[in-house]
Design a protein around this nucleic acid. Structure first.
Lengths: 153, 153
DNA sequence: CTTGAAACAAAGGCAAG
DNA sequence: CTTGCCTTTGTTTCAAG
């Protein structure tokens, strides 16, 4: 399976627009890029087929929903072989929004979002640290998120 | 400024659907939730006005674009007062897709995406480590990303 | 606040250049 | 691969419940 798709300049321009607003009318892009709306449609459909475009989603302001706490937790496992088990358990916690398998000090690195610091403590004490296979954790609380964007295609 | 908006059960259901697919027809949601398409429209518009919904975007498969390397870098500053300066400089590097101001071992914590390990080395050596105000960095390479999702509204 | 119908706009399909 | 037309589908508006 070849995993790098052929993206030309037009595809790239389309992606740049759609990563900012997935509902941009094809006619608008067509005009801007000097092609017909049909062409935009064909290109988008091709990128969807090839898997470059996986779908669309609304961007939600978590703060407005009351999610004020964002943190990263480095997890050290008792044994590397427990990786899959731990991921499965982490997956059941809605507060764990991202997980990475990493080199370096930690085996697993996760991002957690909660409404309050108290809730974060709860997630740590009553959920994460109750996972048997975890030896220890280290927490980085995020106070601010000055950069959040996508790859510039 | 009150920052937690009033989200009722219907709003929540709508958000759950739209975070998975921003282009779900209003008529489809209306049928599923037992209300009229007009109501869905009103609710979505209200959440857009209040800022809960910030916009829409396509989800891109970075791997298909050749971005195979994802890593986190913990940055230690020479002096905490240089925070803004450093963020501004980081912002000019497209490869830096996220940045956080954190408590703990690092002052700034960033996520970087590149095509290859060589490119990552280049970003580190020729961009990030050339920033005067940075004292040292620590890199966590992500080998896998088993969880990636949004807050469950 | 919700509804349903009517007007409008965009997307999807298709045959031809 | 691109285009323009045509059909279908979805969104938006609005007067009324």
């Amino acid at each position: 399976m070849q995993h790098t798709s052929h993206i030309d300049a037009l595809d790239q321009q389309i992606l740049r627009v759609l990563t900012k607003d997935a509902r941009t009318p094809y006619a608008e892009m067509a005009k801007k890029f000097g092609v017909s709306p049909g062409t935009i449609h064909v290109r988008v459909e091709k990128m969807r087929q090839s898997g470059v475009i996986e779908g669309t989603k609304v961007r939600i302001n978590e703060r407005k929903l009351g999610y004020d706490v964002c943190c990263f937790i480095g997890i050290i496992l008792k044994s590397a072989k427990d990786y899959d088990t731990v991921i499965k358990k982490l997956q059941t916690f809605d507060e764990v929004v991202e997980a990475y398998y990493t080199t370096g000090n930690y085996s697993i690195f996760i991002k957690v979002m909660t409404h309050t610091i108290e809730e974060l403590h709860g997630v740590l004490a009553n959920k994460i640290q109750l996972i048997d296979e975890i030896q220890s954790t280290e927490t980085l609380i995020s106070m601010q998120n000055p950069i959040l964007r996508d790859i510039n295609p």
